[in-house]
Nucleic acid binder design. Sequence first.
DNA 1: TTGAAAGCGCTAACAC
DNA 2: GTGTTAGCGCTTTCAA
Lengths: 338, 338
Amino acid sequence: MITIKDVAKEAGVSVATVSRVLNNKGGAKPETITHVENVIKKLNYKPNKIAKSLSEGSSNLIALLVPTLNNPFFPELVREIEKVANENGYNVYLCNSDDDRMKVEYYLESMIDHYVSGAIINSLHVDASDLAELEKRGIRTITIDRANFEHPYSAITVDHTLGAQLAVTHLIRDEKCNNIVFISGPKNEKSAIDRLTGFTLALNEAGHPVKTHICYGDFGTASGYENTKALIQNGHSFDSIFCANDAMAIGAMRACHEFGIKVPSEVKIVGYDNISLASYMYPTLSSVDQCKEDIGRLAVNELIQLIKNPKNKQKQYELEPKLVIRNSSTINGGSINE
Amino acid sequence: MITIKDVAKEAGVSVATVSRVLNNKGGAKPETITHVENVIKKLNYKPNKIAKSLSEGSSNLIALLVPTLNNPFFPELVREIEKVANENGYNVYLCNSDDDRMKVEYYLESMIDHYVSGAIINSLHVDASDLAELEKRGIRTITIDRANFEHPYSAITVDHTLGAQLAVTHLIRDEKCNNIVFISGPKNEKSAIDRLTGFTLALNEAGHPVKTHICYGDFGTASGYENTKALIQNGHSFDSIFCANDAMAIGAMRACHEFGIKVPSEVKIVGYDNISLASYMYPTLSSVDQCKEDIGRLAVNELIQLIKNPKNKQKQYELEPKLVIRNSSTINGGSINE
DNA sequence: TTGAAAGCGCTAACAC
DNA sequence: GTGTTAGCGCTTTCAA
C-alpha cells in the first residue's frame, strides 16, 4: 500500500503539502501543486478513505435503510439514490431491515459504528427517538415516506391522500366502478391511513353511493393474492380493486386470473408505486407513480446539504403522485390485452 | 462521542485492557472483564469501527458487486448474501455497477479505500487482472457466475449447460416443441455460451430435427420484449421460447400477449432464474432455478473461510440448477391460466 | 509557501 | 494481568 508519506518523500515535500494539494486547500505554489500531482499520478496513489474519515471525524458513507428488497419499488429507489450519491462523492451503505425491528436496531448501531455522515430512512420500525439518537451522534437523517410518526427532522413524503384519491376517482368516474375493494397496507401505517382518507374523499366526491370493502395486506405479493382469493372464495362480489402497492396488485391480479375473472372487463385493478414491471404485466398494470427519481434525488441532495451545513434547518417536503392509466383498469385501451 | 479512553478512565484501567475485553482477547481477570463490561454498558460505549479498521488494516465489510438491481434476481441474491453475512458479523457493502465498466472501476477502488476484507463479484466487466489487484491488496475474492474468463481464485458457477438442457429437453420431449427460439444473453458471456451448448445438446438428444432461432438480449425485460416483437413482426413462426433469464421471459410473454399469441397453447415459454414473481405471472412462468439461497450461503461462507484463513486454497464450486415447470410451458397445468 | 507535530480512536507489541 | 506506547494514514493547527 502506498501512502501519503511515500508521495511526500518522492516529491521531496512534507505530507502536509501533499494533503493540501490533495484537498485543494490552496496555499501552495502552482509549481509545487503540479509537481505533487505528477508524483501522485506516477505512483498511482489513492488516499485511504478510512484514515481520512477517522481524521476528519466523518465518512463519505450515507446509510440507506429500506424495509425490504422483495418489493421491486425499493431496488429501483436504491438505484436512484446510489446514483445521485455517487455523483456527489458519497457511497451508499445499504441496510435492508426486512421489516424487522431487530435488524433495524442492528443497522442503526452499525451506522454509528461506521461513522456514516447521514442516513436516509424508510422503515416502519424507526421512531422519533431513534432519529434523535442518530442526530445526537452527528448523523443527519432524512425519512422517506412510511414514517407513521411526527418528528422534527427532514422528511420527504408523497401525498398519499391525493394518490389514493386519483386512483379511486379514476375507477369511479372514468370506469363507472361502484363496488371497490381497497387492499391497504398495514393498519398502523401512516400511508395506509392517508390512502384511506383519499379513498373516502374520492367516494364522497362521487355524488352517489359506492360499495366498498377494505382489507389489509403487508405490501407483499402474497398478501395481495391471499386477500383477493379469500374475497372471491367467500363470494364477495366487486368490480374493482385498488391496492396500496404494485406487488399486492400483482398478487390480486393473479388471484383473479386463477378464478377466471377477467381483468379489466370484470374487475379493474389499480396499484401504487409504478414499478417498472407494471408495464409488462398482463394486462399492463395501472398504477400511482410516486416519482422514485424525484424522491431519490431530493433525499440525497437534502441530506448532503444537512451534512455540509450542520446549521441548516430541516425541511419537510411533500411530493405529488401521478396516476398512470394502463390496461388493468380501462377497457378502452385493453382490447389486445384481455 | 465516547471513546475507549473514557471507558478506561471510568473503569480505572488502561485502554489496552478495555481493548482486550472488547475483543475477547483473554489475559484479563474475570472480575476486570465484568467490571469493564459494566462500564461499557453504563456509558453506552460503541467502539469506532473506522478506527478499528485503520488500526487493524481491515474491516468487517464484504463488498458485493452486482451488475444491476433491475433484474429481480439480484435483489433476491443480495438479500440472501446480506443475511448470511450478518449472521457471521459482517456487513455488506453493496456495489451496483449497472453493468458499466466505469462504475466497476469506481467500486473496485472504493473497495480498497474502505478496507473491505473480501469481495463477492458478479460482473461481466471484471477480469482476472482486477481480481489479482484486489487479492494483491489483501482483499479475498469470490466470483459468482457471469464470469467469462479463467482465474485462479474462488468461484461459484451454476451448470448452465445443464440448466439450458433441462429447459429445452422439457420443451422438446414433454411439450413436443419443434420450433424453438432461444433468447440468449450477451454473446461474449460464458453463461450465454454454456447455455447455447446445453441448447445444442438437448437438440441432439431429441433424435429428430428441431427448428431453432437464436437471438441476443441483454438480460433486461425490454430486450426480451423487443426481440420477440421483432420476430413476430417479421413473420417468424415458432412454438416456444427459451429465455436466458426471467426478466427477458417476462418481456417475451408480454410481446406474445400484445399480438394475441396464446401462452402456452400457441407458444411455450421458459425462463431462467426462478425469480419470486415467476409464480405470479400470467401464465405462471416456468423457469430454471439457480438456487440463489445456495449460491448466497456458499459464497459468504467460502469468503469468510478465505478471510479468516489466508492460507486456505481457493475452491471452485459448480451448482446444479433445477427446472421448475409452471403454466407458461405446459398445457396440462394451464387450463385456468390461459 | 511550507514543514513539524499533534491527534482522530483503536490495536498490539513490549514491558512490568 | 495490566499498562505504556508506537503506530494505522490522514488532516490541521502552529511556527517558521
